[in-house]
Design a binder for these strands. Structure first.
Lengths: 335, 335
DNA sequence: TTGTACGCGTTATCAG
DNA sequence: CTGATAACGCGTACAA
């Protein structure tokens, strides 16, 4: 063996047929006689031949590659989304390229440029937001772009968003039914549109009931920020009896601070609701009542739009139902 | 715009030079005059040209693609590893293809075949184990293979393993120093070599001190299995006062069962040690004493072997130090 | 330094 | 149904 890939030519020679016959054998829906097919397959097997997707992608207009643009992909929700996306993409005959935008040097635009280098058929953005010029460039190159939970303003990509406003109202009424009156909202300082929508929806819904909301924004959307906010909130003069955390990770941090550093009992002294419904929310140390991300629907919508040419619908608006566990006291009603 | 990629030919025409000049402009270390370079760059910018890596990979022997073969990639440790790998690979000028082997149809072999389709320069396997024939096929095709925490037997790939045996001995002596005498080991039923190495090392080390170990194996290596094992262990006649869990997730499940269902206090009534040191281990609800996966070293070793042609060393054996938190009582000593 | 010509491995086209 | 030939977009000897 001389450490090199075997080509269709090699197979053709060995099988005693033309290169075209080999190509046809490996092209679904082409017309080959059963006899040549057998001969080709046999030779291919013996030589260890594999279709070169690079060359195939060069000929056809599509490469079969879909790029996933993500930062902080070890975050539970992101990780779950990436897992589901890659799985369904494979089922649809696509392959995923993972582009990590963790470092800070204009990463998203650089990443999107990478997707052009590899002639990706599409890009799915789970993090960040591309420059408008880059987006147009991708679109003009025939690429499809999906934005998950990012923004509503940018034109061209397919946008998937959740009804954060509705969720916020559901949270307020759940708190009120539990008898809570001192409401707080724990947000990160990131300022992503969907994060801000939850905050504003919560504040607005509370105001409808004549209640003010203490809003605290701090750091990234992670556990440690929730903990810091918890300390701020519970060492203040009027500590809240209900907190809506912008995601589950922050909720855990806040709960840990409240319980272990301030002796709060949940849900007796304090009600908490989160967002994402990551795996840890089901763990009995937290048992967090939280809004669930409809991951399957998100994935289905994304891929349906990628593979079908349905360029008509340009956005999807999905519902995030409340999962009742044990961090809101009282009786459960539908969320 | 007619929804298509622009080629080097287009750029050449617009810049009034030959196509070779364009190629040279985008090939690092080629000789082009500053003037033509400028003209080419300008034309490329105006047209929105991007080098086609597929075609480039067709010419050169290497595609720049590295495949990551993973299952259950939303597991915290796996997710962290994937994040770190993609990040460093990008820094090394490579791009990651993510292959999800979650479904059960002979997945790993199918996955590895996919890596051949796209002429990947290398494959990194975080899950599963390939058939020997497939491995040989990849190797013969000039591909490099890295096995992370998988097996020691298979020949050809670069293997990265942890000193699970040493860790097991450290765990035993930590338990003994804390005054524990009724030892247990919580394992999954998966039976991966590294998982079994931890178990056997623990049992052997305990025997050296004249102690028996209650070994329980159940389900997958996840939270719920740990919980189930916890129930089994603490509803038994001789419940343990120390448990080594084969990974952190199982430790959390076991701790939650012990605390919330059996009223055990940790570390007063029960000492626990885990493995992986995932983010959740630092959360104050768990504060788990655990062995840390040297992720950075794993990544560095993998990539060093992939990009440099150092085919001499065929394995790395890394140390997993113990991180002391609050699930083992008594004084800390070096792990 | 520049342009020409060829090859990389595949598919599409067309004549047989 | 089959085989020859022309693309696809790029790198690279080679000659100019």
């Amino acid at each position: 063996m001389n450490k090199t890939f075997v080509s269709a030519d090699d197979v053709a020679k060995r099988a005693g047929v033309s290169r075209s016959a080999v190509s046809r054998t490996f092209t679904p829906g082409a017309s080959v006689s059963e006899e040549t097919r057998q001969r080709v397959m046999q030779a291919a097997e013996a030589l260890g031949y594999h279709v070169n997707q690079l060359a195939r992608g060069l000929m056809r207009s599509e490469s079969g590659i879909v790029c996933l643009v993500v930062s902080e992909m070890d975050t539970p929700y992101r990780a779950r989304l990436v897992r589901a996306l890659t799985h369904e993409l494979q089922l649809a005959g696509k392959i995923s390229m993972l582009i990590n935008t963790d470092r800070s040097d204009g990463s998203v635009d650089t990443a999107l440029r990478q997707t052009l280098h590899y002639r990706a058929d599409a890009s799915i953005l789970l993090s960040g937001l591309p420059d408008k010029a880059i987006t147009k460039l991708c679109l003009d190159s025939g690429q499809r772009i999906v934005l998950i939970n990012r923004d509503d303003e940018i034109e061209g990509p397919f946008r998937i968003n959740l009804d954060d406003g509705v969720a916020a109202r559901v949270a307020v009424s759940a708190f009120l039914r539990a008898g809570c009156r001192r409401l707080a909202f724990a947000n990160s300082a990131v300022g992503t549109p969907s994060l801000m929508a939850r905050e504003q929806g919560f504040v607005a819904a509370a105001r409808d009931f004549g209640l003010d909301v203490t809003v605290v924004r701090h750091g990234n959307t992670v556990y440690e920020s929730g903990r810091t906010i918890g300390r701020t909130l519970f060492s203040g003069l009027e500590p809240p009896d209900a907190v809506f955390c912008v995601n589950d990770l922050m909720a855990f941090g806040l709960m840990d601070a409240a319980r272990h550093e301030f002796g709060r009992r949940i849900p007796d002294d304090l009600c908490v609701v989160g967002f994402d419904d990551i795996e840890q929310s089901g763990w009995s140390s937290y048992a967090l009542t939280t809004f669930t991300q409809p991951v399957d629907e998100i994935v289905r919508n994304s891929i349906a739009w990628l593979v079908n040419g349905d360029a008509s619908s340009r956005s999807a608006f999905l519902h995030a139902p409340l999962i009742w566990r044990k961090t809101i006291r009282g009786t459960r009603r539908n969320g």
